[in-house]
């Protein structure tokens, strides 16, 4: 029961949230399902890695790597740009809530909270970006390595 409420349900919610956003970004057909599975997978990695690393920034990094690997694989399989999957699958992780709360602190005059929340939000977005870029860089390096050997 604990496993269900702690791990399974949030991932199901993430799946449906991504599905909703597929409509907004005009993603159609099988791509919708792939994005949503990617979103759920990313959140599962985020939750599952919590006891191991004890830092939500590292968790975000690991989740972004998982999503990027999944997206690269699917993009290769379906021959379309990896952005299509990456963008929506990252949605449950992107710090939309963080940036909103940051600016709420800012206009509320709570400077300390504003600064710490701003730095944390930027760090979180940075970790996601590093995770995603790392995978695409490795894929690109592997491609030129394979091309050089041929």
């Amino acid at each position: 029961m604990n496993v269900i409420s702690q791990y399974l349900l949030p991932c199901v919610y993430a799946f449906f949230a991504c599905l909703g956003f597929c409509f907004l970004f005009n993603n159609r057909g099988v791509g919708m399902l792939i994005c949503s599975v990617g979103g759920a997978l990313g959140w599962l990695v985020y939750l599952a890695s919590a006891p191991l690393v004890r830092s939500d920034l590292i968790q975000a990094f690991l989740a972004a790597v998982a999503i990027a690997v999944f997206s690269e694989g699917m993009a290769r399989l379906r021959r379309c740009p990896v952005t299509s999957y990456l963008l929506i699958a990252l949605f449950p992780l992107v710090p939309g809530r963080g940036i909103y709360l940051t600016m709420l602190y800012c206009i509320g005059g709570e400077t300390q909270l504003f600064l710490s929340s701003l730095l944390h939000t930027l760090g979180f977005a940075g970790c996601l970006a590093v995770g995603a870029m790392l995978v695409s860089a490795v894929v690109r390096m592997y491609r030129s390595f394979a091309a050089a050997r041929r």
């Binding site: 963008l87 992107v94 963080g98 977005a125 970006a129 590093v130």
Partner: peptide, 9 residues
């Protein structure tokens, strides 16, 4: 959130 992450990229 997406715009922020994209800006980092």
């Amino acid at each position: 959130g997406v715009a922020l992450t994209n800006s980092m990229r």
